[in-house]
């Protein structure tokens, strides 16, 4: 019975992916991509990975879907030419087909080999869990065993936000916020926003012992900010650049400060002293959640429709 469910899930997933890639209209492709993200969230449950299911639903389908829809709204409506007939004639089609088929064949060759790895990292993860300050193994890996990875990853997020800002530099940040003065939406905001913040903080707190953590909490926070922004309220972000930068860098600098502090107490970077491990991890996670929420929100705001008039053609 289990295999049947898995096969059904995979069939739906692949159909979504095919429709998303082959559909002529961009809007349809994005909708199928969001559905693909949701199907993937269910598949991650089947793969006993609740953390990834949460992250995929919140970030993969949610935030990515919002960014795509936002981008699609500002590009020209597509002329839907007869896609399938002209598709096969293009040489690109055959080249792409050959490339994808060869990758699939090579990958299936690699995947159905009997694998018996000698080293298993699972045992040491579980054994040294009590030394890591948190009970949930995934959070222990992300913020203690391999915290150097997470530090760099947050630097990647800050880097992308800085690029988005620098691309908007030549016209000052005056972005007009969308007008959606719908009375019902404003009324519901008073109900949704506190609940979204509560869910985000719960996810953050629960991360220590069950699936949850900084990234999922950050994306829920970003959703709250975006909802608030879409309802037409002009947040101070629009006219002051320092708010933006301070919000982005807050998580990264807290993470780095704690890392440097531990450097001078212990002998290795990011080696939290045993009794402070839990507290320092939560402190880092709290700062990182706020920063991720703020970065994802400002990526949404900074890519609002660029008024064509003031983009000058200036070459170096």
């Amino acid at each position: 019975m289990n295999e049947l469910i898995d096969l059904a899930l995979i069939a739906i997933l692949l159909f979504m992916a095919l429709f998303s890639v082959l559909s002529a209209v961009l809007f349809k492709a994005i909708i199928f991509f969001i559905l693909l993200g949701l199907m993937l969230a269910i598949i991650w449950i089947r793969l006993d990975a609740p953390d990834i299911a949460l992250a995929e639903a919140a970030i993969g389908a949610g935030i990515t879907g919002i960014l795509f829809l936002n981008a699609q709204a500002q590009l020209p409506p597509q002329h839907t030419q007869a896609y399938t007939v002209s598709m096969c004639k293009q040489s690109r089609f055959w080249f792409a087909l050959i490339a994808s088929l060869s990758t699939m064949i090579v990958l299936t060759l690699a995947v159905n080999q009997p694998l018996n790895p000698t080293i298993s990292i699972n045992q040491p993860i579980i054994e040294q869990l009590n030394a890591s300050g948190v009970e949930h193994p995934i959070t222990a890996i992300l913020l203690n065993y391999r915290s150097f990875d997470t530090l760099l990853e947050i630097a990647v997020l800050v880097q992308v936000a800085v690029i988005a800002l620098s691309l908007r530099q030549h016209e000052h940040i005056k972005i007009h916020s969308p007008t959606l003065p719908n009375p019902l939406l404003h009324a519901c905001l008073t109900l949704f926003l506190p609940m979204l913040f509560l869910v985000s903080m719960y996810l953050l707190w629960a991360g220590a012992s069950q699936p949850g953590g900084a990234f999922q909490a950050g994306s829920v926070l970003a959703a709250a900010f975006i909802l608030f922004y879409l309802a037409g309220f002009n947040t101070p972000i629009n006219n002051h650049e320092l708010y933006l930068k301070f919000g982005w860098v807050f998580g990264l600098s807290v993470f780095l400060m704690v890392g440097i502090l531990t450097l001078f107490t212990g002998d290795a970077l990011l080696a939290y002293p045993l009794e402070f491990a839990g507290v320092s991890i939560f402190f880092i996670e709290f700062a990182v959640t706020l920063s991720i929420g703020w970065i994802l929100f400002s990526l949404f705001v900074l890519s609002q429709n660029i008024s064509l008039s003031n983009v000058k053609e200036n070459n170096e």
């Binding site: 960014l67 990292i121 990647v156 997020l157 992308v160 990526l299």
Partner: peptide, 24 residues
């Protein structure tokens, strides 16, 4: 196995960053 799940979490966030950058 918990390690690849943590790697995929990092990967998803990096993929979102890449998508946001490409869209901008």
């Amino acid at each position: 196995d918990h390690l690849p799940q943590a790697l995929v979490l990092t990967g998803i966030v990096v993929a979102v960053a890449a998508t946001a950058l490409a869209l901008v």
